[in-house]
Design a protein around this nucleic acid. Structure first.
Lengths: 331, 331
DNA sequence: GTGAAAGCGCTAACAC
DNA sequence: GTGTTAGCGCTTTCAC
């Protein structure tokens, strides 16, 4: 049978209160009493039941992370970084994978926020803020990660999307590109929208003609990029901007297979997943936008724990900046 | 304040038992009573508290997965696959990352098995079975994944390690290789040991000289492979076998950077992480051993849930086989 | 310096 | 067909 705190108390000849206080260092206990308690614990092999404890205290010491795509290296690395921070602070991490599906996200938010976790990290795939907002119990600690909503009522940790794309387009234009195509992620995501907006502004500012047939969207997951590229190549693009790491890998491979050389036949700029091996091979032949994934995860961990401690802290927004690694080739 | 089952009962004018049974479909409740209950639930916005429920029932509906390296695509994909199976069966997944550190593994097993999860999936980094075994509470559901111990007292889901390496060496020998080097993962892991054993046997069976200076070990994590390769190249190897996906990526990149062409200057065979983009580029120039990661995750999910339901089921061992994708080049 | 006991929210055995 | 109630294992207030 399961060993409980009363078993320990009985064997040690003290009350359950004393056992509890001994374990948790929560009030003075004389050295000899402590000793008896620890002996009893050891003898019985007692471990306090986490489940009873969280029920009693209301603290689960667990954070939920709702992720759109675990197997994506970008999120994989972020999960690692979050878990690292949390475990160092005595918290556990529950993962839920939505596969960019809003219904799955809804189910998971419901399940996790119903007493399973103390707080939620969400990289939301939802477009509709009201739908999202309605799911979150009042005062429930939430931090948005990588993606935000127009309405800024939740804390968020994001990466600057505008600046690197704007800069990329300007650089390409300065190098002489006339037809710059772009492949965005899922159109409904804030990150995609910001990136496309940056593209449009830069195109205008550089005096290039606006041409919506040069704007295409993938689905931010695997195998979504080929048809976009086919069209862009048909359109005689001399440069391509890719807005997401997974799609960037596929782009590199696809162009390679078609015998199109980066930096020679075509210029490529892309958000690139930190640490993906593929880029080590091609980083010299393209402009790479490297997102600070580890810092993202770290900041997300910090913020959610802070919010769990102070649920009514003011909304906090952090925007990290990506590193820009220009190609070393002169076209 | 928090809405509890008693609030609902009061508003609906029924007992808490009825509310509970209505929610859980656990005994007959008349249509009209059900109706009153649901109305009250809706009106109050009641959600049953998961934490109270698991405390009461003893079921957490949560599985823990102890992983050596989350950011490794091999485990990332496996996590996805496990989570997929579990969530379809109403379970949650808690992740713990050990970074191949036995002490971290120990801490995590302790924490998670103390009433936080119903069962544990472990890709253990431990060498010592007794140490591992001592951590697991009696009758606690555990399934080993990807790595086992000599002592087979836990269920396990693994991938055949011997056969593909043996075959690789034979193929290389048949192609005329005289000096076949090998880079293993962490020496203490069962997977590494099996692979190195296969290499040794095949070398012997093919009549090649045993030469321990051709056997090197990385650490199964990032940036561990260059020194191994330098030595092997110094030793004038004409073929190299790499035992792990992350190290394989690094090998490809390193050889590429040194201008050594796969399948021409040197033959390469490697365990390759399913789905890593890099291999799409090089799969024609090397022999690839592709592990069935998704099936691994699926089987792991199945087994742990089965064990949670029947904790005293007999030990179950499943060994999946890897796909072998030969190079399309003739050297 | 320590103990007694209430009670967290829920489920389920027992009663009618 | 539904209600009453004990109690899961722990923390914490109140009391001495």
């Amino acid at each position: 049978m399961k060993v409980t705190i009363s078993d320990v108390a009985r064997l040690a000849g003290v009350s359950t209160a004393t056992v509890s206080h001994t374990i948790n260092n929560t009030r003075y206990v004389s050295a000899e009493t402590k000793d008896k308690v620890y002996k009893a614990i050891a003898e019985l092999g007692y471990t306090p039941d986490a489940s009873a404890r969280s029920f009693r205290t209301g603290k689960k010491k667990t954070v939920g992370f709702i992720v759109p795509d675990i197997s994506n290296k970008f999120f994989g690395t972020m999960i690692e970084s979050v878990e690292n921070y949390l475990s160092a602070h005595g918290y556990h991490l529950i993962i839920a994978n939505t596969k960019e599906d809003a219904d799955r996200e809804e189910t998971n938010i419901r399940l996790l926020s119903a007493g399973l976790v103390d707080g939620l990290l969400v990289a939301s795939t939802m477009e509709d803020f009201d739908r999202f907002n309605a799911l979150i119990p009042t005062d429930f600690p939430v931090v948005l990660v990588d993606r935000t909503f127009e309405t800024k009522s939740y804390s968020s940790i994001c990466v600057s999307n505008f600046q690197p794309i704007y800069r990329s387009v300007c650089r390409l234009a300065a190098k002489g590109a006339k037809r710059i195509g772009i492949v965005g992620g899922l159109p409904r995501l804030s990150s995609t929208q910001e990136r496309i907006a940056a593209y449009r502004e830069a195109i205008a500012d550089c005096g290039l003609p606006q041409d919506d047939s040069l704007i295409h969207y993938g689905n931010s997951m695997e195998n979504s990029v080929q048809s976009c590229l086919d069209t862009l190549l048909d359109q005689k693009c001399d440069a391509i901007v890719v807005c997401q790491g997974l799609m960037a890998s596929e782009t590199i491979i696809y162009l390679h297979q078609k015998g199109i050389r980066l930096g020679e036949d075509i210029d490529l700029v892309s958000f690139v997943d930190y640490d993906t091996n593929l880029y080590q091979l091609y980083s010299g032949q393209m402009d790479c936008i490297v997102q600070p994934v580890e810092e993202l995860g770290l900041a997300a961990g910090e913020q959610i724990l802070r919010r769990i401690e102070k649920p009514d802290a003011p909304v906090f927004e952090k925007v990290l900046t990506s590193a820009y690694r220009p190609s070393i080739m002169a076209k």
